[in-house]
Design a protein around this nucleic acid. Structure first.
Lengths: 193, 193
DNA sequence: ATGAGATGAGACAGGTCTGTATCGTTTAGG
DNA sequence: CCTAAACGATACAGACCTGTCTCATCTCAT
């Protein structure tokens, strides 16, 4: 009764259910049994789609990366200048911090639980973090030399990542405000040499 | 032969052994059996000192906070100006990133695995993060008004936290360099209003 | 040296974990 | 309608988890 999800929609349903549980409880703390129970799916159905829990985690992270990218793509369309683009990204994060079930950055959490550099989950995290960083480099390269764009992008990236962590500790508003102050300086004047 | 650790030194030995394992493998992924085996200690010895694994985790975090604080205290003694103090903290982190068994920030990892705000581990993380932040506020208050010192301290704190995470992804050097660039601007000129 | 506390060693309980196997049922496409 | 694939339900294996319990041994201060 509850679900007429069919075709390959079952696979996606498992991914999104696992995402919600991983986000709230963590990866090691979330068992396969809880995922399939929450998804209303047989265990073998999950193991036919994903060869292991680890592969499911990678799939969840990559799906989340794609969704995040498409959301930022929509924001970029309505931003003409780099300043507007950066402001849009900061605004997106500020709204995210206030969303109902915000539990910090899933990729930061994945990095914490799977910190070995040759782990598949580590690679998925690196993909997402480089993706957002490259996005800002591209935006900033419109109005500044590429070397400086890389520095400014990394600084903004660092502030956003830290703001996400601080948001989990109840200081998201102040963190975003301070990130904006630094951004305005970085985008207006020179820094470094 | 391996151990003549005795008295209440056994408790401390368990804490430091658990610290090394938690740091490398994470909290949920590290079982009690591995901790006591690595420490060369009976299971009941551990459970007489710590009522539960969760309390052991809190103890490990608080001990690590104290050690971190005493290290920074020594650095503060040889720093006259806020600029020197901030530079010393950044330098400490830069050396930390290059240390042999660097695996990122244990407190960030704890926050990832125990993200519920009313959890004892969460509180231990918050203590450490506020501690380093307050330390910088105190340093900066020597040469700037307290409101601005709070903002600058938070920005520097954010850059340091993000640099620690980036160091785990192999970008620690560039991250610290960029943190230094922002610090020099924050300490020299005005920001915000 | 003697009694009290700390410890070592290991069995044990009860639960959960990942992953596999089996079998009956449902669904979808030709 | 009919066949082949997908799915649900469940039992199962083997390992690991946290935490408790017992008992022999060791250490140390008095």
């Amino acid at each position: 009764m509850s679900s007429h999800v069919r075709g390959s929609g079952k696979r996606q349903h498992i991914v999104e259910t696992a995402y919600a549980l991983f986000k709230r409880d963590g990866f090691h703390a979330t068992g396969i049994d809880r995922i399939i129970a929450q998804a209303g799916v047989a265990k073998m159905t999950m193991y036919r789609h994903f060869p292991s829990k680890e592969e499911l985690i990678v799939e969840v992270l990559d799906w989340r990366t794609a969704r995040f990218e498409s959301q930022l793509d929509r924001l970029s369309d309505s931003a003409k200048t780099p300043d507007e683009g950066i402001a849009a990204i900061l605004g997106w994060h500020e709204r995210w911090f206030d969303s109902a079930d915000f539990h910090g950055c899933l990729f930061q959490h994945a990095l914490a639980e799977f910190g070995e550099p040759d782990h598949a989950v580590f690679a998925a995290v690196a993909r997402q973090k480089m993706s957002i960083q490259n996005r800002m480099v591209d935006m900033l390269s419109q109005t500044m030399p590429p070397v400086r764009a890389a520095d400014v992008a990394m600084i903004l990236f660092m502030l956003i990542e830290a703001a996400t962590m601080l948001a989990q500790m109840g200081q998201g508003k102040a963190a975003i405000d301070n990130a904006r102050k630094v951004a305005s300086v970085l985008l207006a004047r020179e820094i470094g040499e």
